[in-house]
Design a protein around this nucleic acid. Sequence first.
DNA 1: CGTTGAACCTGTTTGC
DNA 2: TGCAAACAGGTTCAAC
Length: 278
Amino acid sequence: MPELPEVETLVRGLRKSVIGRRIREVRLGKTDFIDDPALLERGLPGCRIVAIERYGKYFLLRLGSVRNGRPASSLLVHLGMTGHLAAHPPAEPAPKHTHVVMPLDDGRELRYTDPRRFGRMALLEGTSLETVLGKLGEEPMEVTLAEFRRRLAGRRARIKSLLLNQSFLRGVGNIYADESLWHARIHPMRFGANLTEQQARDLHRAIRKTLSDAIRLGGSSISDYRDAEGRPGFFQLRHRAYDREGKPCYRCRARIRRILVAGRSSYFCPRCQRAPRP
DNA sequence: CGTTGAACCTGTTTGC
DNA sequence: TGCAAACAGGTTCAAC
């Protein structure tokens, strides 16, 4: 579900609705996606949410403690495939698979819901937080062309693998990798180091444009993604490759194909995105 | 450095 | 209709 544009959209909504609120208590359901559940129960009550930041597909609720002498900590959240976090009135029945409920000081409940539990939640501070974030590559919308090319140089992995690799760039997932490659007319099986200078430029531009357009439309809602207010995104209406197997390419009308690259479905136009030489 | 496949988990869609 | 397989926005790990 959530790649960079979906996480960014959710984070923007959360900033509007929960910044400044205090967490009163924590109620946990299944906890196998939480690093240290007991630490959440101990450390979160009484904390005020002072800021929310996104790093690729992760985001942080920055917490200010009301008690003295406790270092500032952050709730790290990754939504996995099906995670969702939003504030709700307590009268609204919690859906199935709601695993974390945090009543707030304004009477609402911040709820984390995740049917597949591929997400991650952890209360972290200092070096353990840096360890997680330090493994991530640069923000794909901020990386310079020079840095992008430098990172590409010498990489023998296929470009699709690189785009999905969060230490190469943070935040691109399966949808936006395929969409960016379609816009840049690059085959997903091409090797990173073999891209021409022009292709690297096109891809760098395509990634930034695709992600910013997607954010503008509130992300992609394939089946269940919703923002912090429960509204779907609309970028799925602009998909040019992803999930369009057999449908005509928007540029050349050739049929979009699906192949497996790096174990993931990869959609591309066989005419616009030429295969690498064998 | 790479790749592949499996694992984690639930729900939905597809195919026979 | 019914059941099984395939597939899904992600990450991680073992084996090669």
